[in-house]
Design a protein around this nucleic acid. Structure first.
Lengths: 205, 205, 205, 205
DNA sequence: GATGAATGAGTGTTCATTCAT
DNA sequence: CATGAATGAACACTCATTCAT
């Protein structure tokens, strides 16, 4: 499109974007494997196959990378979950499917758990923003369910607390069953979660 | 007051135990204030008022202290909660009281949240052991409730998942309402937790 | 205004000269403000509004710029002083007027002091050449005064030492009264310098 | 004195003082040889024969060493000069002897010039304090000369300017004749300085 | 000739750990 | 058993310089 013929070199801009992407992927790999504390610039740039100093053409400092990492992978995760929910109706089935999709995603992406949950320590602002984004998504979903009459007995402020309960529940179940390296959350965990949501939130018997 | 007459000097063993206790308290203070990552030996020994090198007469290395810290403060926490439950009956009220006692404890002990939840990153074995200890306590409580017929519809494996749900719920509610520095969990959070437990677990309407 | 009709584009050579001039001015501004040590290529090219790499089309390396900077601004300074002396006669009045012109120049050009006197550290050859140029000018002036019989009692070698005394005197008075950021050398400094020159050099009472 | 017998090890305190002294001497050597800019911690500690990290047991950072260096060597210099003036009377002879002692000191201590005069750039506060200390010494000397009637025609404010003239004069003469590495200031420089002081300040013919 | 991304050697600084006193 | 100076590996970060575009 630009220069000679078919076989085109990457433009400068494309190259820069590719380098940025490689840095992000390398950071996700290293942090997922070893945690934020052990994720030195040297390790990350070595993983990305670029020079140490190049890092600082893309990030002001190490913290800036940490702050960017969770938004990056967090969005991949929510996109993955959202995609798994396309076409589903409402009710407890939707919430249970969301939980299952969350577990699937963690199982398919080892290292995600660590990036997500160590962020509370190493990138607190990004972690807070990530949680807030999840909460917003939940809030809309639950308020629709309230409007449809599927959920009763929780006022608005209580619904926010419910969201944190659901997020905490899935985080701890993932910690128990995934973070060790296991590939899957067992069915018993899913059925327990399902029952708590059906009975506790949607008022089913 | 200490030195003159009756009141004898501390024996060697007592002195060593006092030093150990001061180290633990200092570590709890420093980690609670600044996190594990910033808790250097220098800071901890300064806080404890002992020499830098003395640390290594009590712990093999920094990790050994970190591994000992959560058992120490974690037991204080569970003791506090247990004390608050003395005399209470069973049923959902007991579980709700436990949650309330947990929140109270965190509110009264700023810094505990950090010691507890950063431990997953910096003292993973101690964190796993702590969780396992909590789970065991819960397991006994829930199995008694099952035996009394208060809980129905969850088999043994599902009950373990339920325990993680409860632990996750309280951790995330604490994160939301306490970790920022606020002193108290609001009533709406407690009532939401109570309703989820009553309906979801104890099968009340 | 630039592009349309009569007013032609700059030729290649003119453009190159303009870029060179902008680099020099930018370097003078940055070094005057922050000193040689903090005058990175990045800062200078940003100040000049050109690309980082373009620098190396004009200078072999950073040192080459430093070596060129003092000749550039030093000549501006001596031109300014010379202009202030036009039409004046000889005798101590001329030397005093020179001192006053030097002080005025520094006051009007904040940053010059730094470029000049840090050069001894960061561009020693340029500094030596600058001093040598000043010495040469003084030598001619003083030898004329000797020839006119205004100065007595100093042989040729001693006259060179006298020149260094005068240069050192003015440098230190500038350091004392200008370098801090003050705009002006006080009258007492000028009268003290005048008296030292009148009595010490020109043999007046 | 402390332990077993004659052959005594250094006490901790003595050892620490010896290490500090070695660091200072090493810093003086490295800065004198290569300048402040090139005086890295690595070079200094290598010169001192201690570990890199040990540096930070003695100085908060590199700047702290730079700030301490000039007071250290500056006092050595003024002590040396003061010693050379013991027993001398007043009048211009004293001031001329001071100049000669200054030149001798610089000649015997290559590297001092650099430490002293680069300090204006790299340790400006220490440099200002050093100058101020010199000025105070001069002020007392000149005011005594005024009281004795040896100096006439300069008021108090002018005397301060005169001091800066003398300091600048000796600095520039040193720069000319010593800084290059020459061992001595020639007699012509001394006689020129002497004549300027005799005639210009002390009003002799 | 202009551009700016890439490079990597070099810097100051931290800190867990050791060990002579 | 307490002490605290010494150690050195590791780290984040800077920046002059190069070179493909």
């Amino acid at each position: 499109m630009t220069s000679t013929a078919k076989i085109r070199r990457m433009s400068r801009r494309e190259k820069a974007e590719a380098t940025y992407a490689r840095l992000m992927d390398a950071a996700a790999a290293v942090v997922g494997r070893a945690g934020y504390a052990a994720a030195s610039i040297a390790k990350i740039t070595a993983e990305a196959g670029i020079a140490h100093g190049t890092f600082y053409n893309y990030f002001a400092d190490r913290q800036a990378l940490f702050d960017a990492l969770l938004p990056h992978v967090g969005r991949q995760m929510t996109d993955g979950i959202t995609a798994a929910l396309v076409g589903l109706g409402g009710g407890p089935e939707r919430e249970i499917a969301r939980f299952r999709a969350f577990c699937d995603y963690l199982g398919r992406n080892p290292g995600f758990y660590r990036i997500l949950y160590e962020a509370e320590v190493f990138a607190p602002k990004a972690h807070a923003a990530h949680i807030e984004r999840l909460v917003e998504g939940y809030r809309r979903a639950l308020e629709r369910a309230v409007a449809r009459g599927e959920i009763e007995g929780y006022d608005k402020a209580e619904l926010e607390a419910v969201i944190y309960i659901l997020l905490g529940a899935r985080a701890y179940l993932a910690m128990r069953f995934i973070s060790g390296g296991a590939a899957e959350v067992p069915d018993t965990a899913i059925s327990a979660y399902a029952r708590m949501v059906e009975r506790g939130l949607f008022g089913e018997r």
